[in-house]
């Protein structure tokens, strides 16, 4: 790929999504954008770049951005954060929200929905501890296409076998020919919407828990800081933020601090740390 073509794609994707593509990611760009070029009836990426230069067509720019920002995910990814959610954060919330009986969770960059549905399945398993509670899970992603897939809750055989225990498959899914659809009950617990983390989030409200795992790794430092600062404004002072294993707030945002012996969980700096020990 010509350097000027790579720069054209990389600049546009960065402006629209925040995703940083360095030159060693050229293979990723090629493998993701070749299908886009073919779909548009173009021979190769050179023609795709030429088409982009000539027309600046909004639809083409959106398709390219979606192709580059769609990332693989699976149910109960990494397992540990979901154990922490169930065993540490949820008991804490049940205690501090005992009067309000309300819980709002945000799955940021929810991709095809597995993370948000995993949380919904856990809440369903724990429902007996939460009589009369109102729970809300919001999943957001920049890509309209993956948001639609998440809403449909339909997964292929490979997708339901990675991370998902078969007991959960039997309990919460129905077989639809060669695919599996998550039950109406679980689907009804999650709302998905298209949202760009770099743009206006609109009236998104205040959350008790934010899952933003394996998202910040794709951004440069100023973008990471900006997103974390904004997330600190929509997270309750006694709430919790989950980041991915390779992510941290250290040196990026002083609005959060880590929780002792709970790797990956961050709480607002204003929240007393012993609050979590007591939970």
């Amino acid at each position: 790929m010509k350097k000027e073509d790579f720069d054209l794609f990389a600049d546009m994707v960065k402006k629209r999504s925040g995703l940083v593509l360095t030159s060693e990611k050229a293979y990723l760009l090629e493998s993701r954008l070749m299908p886009v070029a073919r779909k548009l009836g173009l021979k190769d990426l050179e023609e795709l770049a030429a088409s982009l230069r000539n027309k600046r067509d909004e639809k083409i720019m959106e398709t390219i951005t979606e192709a580059m920002t769609t990332n693989e995910t699976f149910f109960f990814r990494d397992q540990k954060p979901f154990d922490q959610f169930r065993q540490v954060v949820l008991p804490h919330m049940l205690k501090v929200r005992a009067n309000k009986k309300s819980l709002r969770i945000w799955s940021a960059a929810s991709s095809t929905g597995q993370e948000a549905y995993s949380l919904a399945m856990i809440l369903s398993e724990e429902a007996h501890k939460m009589p009369g509670w109102h729970t809300e899970i919001i999943g957001t992603d920049i890509s309209h296409e993956v948001v639609e897939k998440a809403k449909a809750g339909l997964y292929n055989q490979f997708e339901v076998q990675r991370g998902l225990p078969v007991t959960m498959l039997v309990k919460y899914f129905q077989q639809k020919e060669d695919r599996w659809q998550i039950s109406d009950k679980i689907r009804g617990m999650v709302q998905y919407r298209t949202m760009n983390l770099l743009e206006d989030w609109g009236p998104i409200g205040l959350f008790d828990i934010i899952f933003c795992r394996n998202v910040l790794i794709y951004f440069d430092q100023p973008t990471k800081s900006k997103i974390l600062e904004r997330q600190s404004q929509v997270l309750a002072p006694d709430g919790a933020l989950f980041l991915g294993g390779a992510e941290s707030v250290l040196g990026i945002c002083d609005k959060f601090k880590s929780v002792e012996s709970q790797r990956g969980i961050y709480i607002p700096t204003v929240c007393p740390a012993d609050m979590w020990k007591a939970a």
């Binding site: 699976f74 397992q79 490979f158 076998q161 990675r162 991370g163 225990p165």
Partner: peptide, 12 residues
């Protein structure tokens, strides 16, 4: 199946 699926089940 593939090795990822087997790995996932062994982890579970």
């Amino acid at each position: 199946f593939d090795s990822d699926i087997i790995k996932s089940k062994l982890q579970l």
